[in-house]
Design a protein around this nucleic acid. Structure first.
Lengths: 340, 340
DNA sequence: CGGGCCGCAGAGAGCGCTCTCACGGGGTGG
DNA sequence: CCACCCCGTGAGAGCGCTCTCTGCGGCCCG
């Protein structure tokens, strides 16, 4: 079947047809479809029957044209994401967003914000294509959002580092999560605690490091054993290698992502350091990586899917003019497994 | 800023306004915007200038209403996906799709096809909301696609097991990839080769098993050492446990996904079986998991992102009535690392 | 018993764009 | 030199819906 529909088959039923069948005017059908309260129940019923009979589905384009609303929100992913796209994080966030929106009238569109032409993204957003945007803006580099969020509802994943201070966002309590992880290492009797931190141009990287640092400082311990990675396994391995090369003793390790922990594991193994015997390890992120490691990674669990859902919820509320908390913070919990 | 735009700020410029500024009719502007060949170059230039001056962006809804095309395609993900969503596979496919579409006029929308109400999905697809659909239909269970793909261009990821035989799809050469993996194990002198196969209700699961089986049969070897998983690390671990429990010797192992390989690794380790010394392992999928394992997994690489791009490309061609190969097959390659 | 409301329905004017159709003018062939 | 094309253009009719505005009854109040 070289498939080309010859003439768009069945022409979709229109409001007009429903109105005719139900014996009312277009306006009334529209009212029923949009749940306007002031419709005679009996007529409403007739209309609903007609809708069912014709298998009527409102035409989104027409509706959006007339109402000047699109009923669509877009998820903006930085194209740089390509590099980290294999991070299960994104998939989970998307899942949460899509899951929430599925129950609303909103449609989810996605754009990869091309770094080469941020203007294209801006024009798309401001061109009346969507009612709002969700931004998974990882790095602090792009500030194109400041301008957009002034005239379009925008919700960020994670505290934006730049842009206007009034942004709406949903974030995970990275700092307290990291603190809890570090506390656990302390409670295990570890005193020479290192960390493999994330990039310092994103909140997740900054805050997790801060939590670790603050906790060690509170315990009067040295917090100089820091190396940085970019959340990928390879960078975790490299950071671990640098950490060991310093020569300072390490008996506890907090890693800012499960993927980096995977990298660290392999280096520890190649140095014949046993987990948790020689080095107790606590990670951050409770994804497949965390569970798949041997020993399974004790880690800070945070609700990624939930974050997506909350972002979507917040955005819809914003679009519909309902009151919204500007910031939503999601707690973390410690998942104890074998590594610490 | 409790952000509520008071009255939709700046009313977007319309075709009409561009026409007035350029001193031509609406029709002519429309022609320019749509690259109609028959426009006087000089006027076209005037129009383009006017567009730039006004920063005009066509209103998608109006265009779609008038043209009966939506310029949107949707990606349908089975909701069951939630369970496997952390699989980097999806993220990569999406990346490929979004990347390709970014260069076209098409917009990407996503829906999680709720298993509880496939009807909702169908109505959305057939309700004129999109010009075409991309289906990442993993399992063979849902056959709702057969009906849809009759009246809407649809491209599948992977050979669909059910539905009309004429479907368009892009697939990876799973069978030959698996065969190559198995051949490698043979070339390493292994003769007691087991496999952890994927679910037998999806092509990726079936074909990879077939490739393994065919190769062993070709070499006159026993191909009864098979256990199944569902592509997750946990299922890989369970399958490995069952395989070892059989008591039959195993010196080579082909695992149908990198994630399952991760699970298998941990079980092999707990049985003090060394990789590749005691058991040489070859996986399938070249994702973060494969590289993060210790020893790094020798695996069959397949172009997941490329598959997404090809799917999108195929769909757009289909929508625009251009000739399209019904099936696209993407080759695999063997990535040699430390595990075999 | 009359006037004023209020609740519900219908008429109709667009929303911004596409696309068919008709038209004018220049080029070609007879 | 005229008939015929054909190319480039503009006019205008919608696409399917929303939403304001008007109108029609019936009810309450004075």
């Amino acid at each position: 079947m070289t498939h080309r529909d010859p003439g768009r088959a069945r022409p979709a039923p229109t409001l007009e047809m429903v109105a005719a069948l139900a014996g009312v005017s277009r306006a009334t059908v529209s009212r029923v479809v949009n749940n306007s309260p002031s419709v005679d129940p009996q007529r409403a019923r007739a209309v609903r029957d007609a809708i069912a009979a014709l298998n009527y589905v409102p035409n989104r384009a027409a509706r959006s044209l007339a109402s000047r609303r699109t009923q669509a929100v877009t998820l903006v992913l930085p194209e740089s994401t390509s590099k980290v796209f294999t991070d299960p994080y994104f998939a989970s966030v998307i899942e949460g967003i899509a899951g929430y929106l599925a129950e609303t009238e909103y449609t989810l569109t996605m754009i990869l914000s091309s770094e080469s032409s941020p203007e294209k993204t801006r024009r798309y957003l401001l061109g009346g294509n969507v009612d709002g945007a969700l931004v998974v803006s990882h790095h602090s580099g792009d500030n194109s959002w400041a301008r957009v969020s002034g005239s379009l509802p925008v919700v960020f994943a994670g505290r934006p580092l730049v842009g206007e201070a009034g942004s709406h966002y949903v974030e995970v309590e990275n700092e307290s999560g990291a603190a809890a992880a570090t506390d656990l290492l302390l409670s295990r009797g570890r005193r020479n605690i290192a960390t493999i931190a994330g990039p310092q141009d994103m909140p997740a990287g900054i805050d997790r490091l801060t939590g670790w640092r603050r906790t060690l400082a509170g315990a009067g311990l040295d917090s100089s054993r820091v190396e940085f990675g970019d959340f990928t396994p390879a960078s975790g391995a490299a950071a671990m290698r640098r950490l060991l090369a310093r020569g300072a003793p390490i008996d506890g390790l907090f890693v800012a992502s499960a993927q980096m922990a995977a990298g660290a594991y392999s280096i520890l193994a190649s140095h014949s350091l046993r987990i948790p015997g020689d080095v107790a390890v606590v990670g951050f992120d409770d994804d497949e990586f965390a569970a798949a490691l041997t020993p399974a990674l004790t880690t800070v669990h945070h609700p990624v899917t939930g974050m997506g859902a909350r972002m979507a919820e917040k955005l819809v509320a914003l679009i519909e003019g309902r009151p919204v908390e500007r910031v939503t913070r999601l707690g973390t919990s410690l998942v104890l497994r074998g590594s610490a």
